[in-house]
Design a protein around this nucleic acid. Structure first.
Lengths: 216, 216
DNA sequence: TGTACATCAGTGAACGCGCGTTCACTGATGTAC
DNA sequence: TGTACATCAGTGAACGCGCGTTCACTGATGTAC
């Protein structure tokens, strides 16, 4: 099962400390938001001095980049795994919600307002495209027989930069975007707490939106 | 036209300085996000010393509260004005987008992720309810003839805390929430820059979503 | 198995910065007679 | 209209804080012979 670990003990140790630092970073983000991330505070939580962390991360931005990358990869893996297991659009919708609720700040790291003054690493766009590809696959799989395209579909058919040459029909492009924006609409408002005190159950609303876009 | 100003010159001056400070605050938020708001920096921009601002705001939180309140009120006023002019759901949708694009950070102040560690003033919920009321009016106005309620509509009909006793039929409740979440889904992703580089025009997607929820 | 050396983790001091906020004070503006 | 007093705007110094980051250094861990 487990392959022999080719890494030296020191490399293993480094990876372990990095991982521990990232765990503390996630906890910190969960309580105070991403813009409040502090290397010094993390070091203190780990019982070491501030500068020590600079052995493991070049600077604060590298830590944040790492967290964002991890978040993207986690969602991409979740999606790919579900799709590989034959999941349809509706399953993906509920996988997305489960993934978001499991760690709200992780979701916001990916789809929330970017940390001000921070430039996302390029490779995240690659992972974002991977997520999109899974979505486009699912949308293409149960695409309806082609009818006359809507204005939006015509527009999307002519602006496919984001599809990475995926051969999805216009209706699938429309559906993929709608899947994304509608579910994000419910999720982000829920995670930001804008439904609290309103009385209804966000899950019911989410399910309705998921079915509206994916079919029952 | 203009009524005599009952305020003393000092009161007028105070209001003017407060307003100027808020303007600088908005600019600061626009470039660095709400969590980076600094009273000292604002004072410096206004050419006065840091502590001077404490004559005008009890502390940082009061300034932020004021900005949030203003943002809510601005949206509520916009909505009420449109509705008073006989606007339908589709008009409200486009008014919302125009309002959001005119000042993205103002939109995020209202519907974005809350500033971490900050508790919104209570009266904003009152203004939020006012916005909802306009929406519910519009949704009730062109509600379809009642049919069998969907599971979501049944649920919403039984959980009306958020409607402030508005007598909207279940289908209108559903429509109002959908209006909100779908349009927010597109808007928030657009404002956060998640569509940049994707090639398509967010306005076209927004219009399609607006028509999906409001009818053409 | 033992020794000599290189590598690397972690420390503490330090730098410069900006923050929110308090305080005693000066000087200008308004009010009352 | 002029004077005496109260109110208020704004200043500069100060406090304590935490931040990111650099640097010279100690001590432990690994490597080579």
């Amino acid at each position: 099962m487990s392959e022999p670990d080719a890494r030296t003990p020191r490399e293993r140790y480094r990876a372990q400390v990095r991982e521990e630092a990232k765990t503390h970073a996630r906890e910190q983000i969960a309580t105070a938001g991403a813009s409040a991330l502090s290397l010094n505070a993390i070091a203190k939580q780990m019982g070491m001095s501030g500068p020590a962390l600079y052995r493991y991360f070049a600077n604060r931005d590298e830590l944040i980049s790492e967290l964002i990358r991890d978040a993207y990869r986690s969602l991409a893996d979740t999606f790919r795994a579900r799709a590989g297991a034959g999941a349809g659009l509706g399953d993906l919708a509920h996988a997305l919600r489960a993934w978001a609720l499991a760690d709200p700040q992780r979701y916001l790291l990916v789809y929330g307002t970017p940390v001000p003054g921070y430039r996302a690493p390029e490779d995240t766009t690659r992972i974002a495209a991977e997520i999109m590809a899974v979505l486009l696959d699912a949308c293409t799989a149960d695409a309806p027989p082609p009818g006359p395209p809507s204005p939006l579909e015509t527009h999307l058919d002519g602006h496919r930069d984001w599809t990475a040459h995926h051969p999805a029909p216009p209706s699938a492009l429309h559906r993929a975007l709608t899947f994304w924006t509608r579910l994000h609409g419910v999720l982000s408002l829920e995670l930001a707490g804008h439904f609290t005190g309103m009385g209804f159950d966000p899950a019911v609303l989410y399910t309705a939106e998921a079915e509206a876009v994916a079919g029952p």
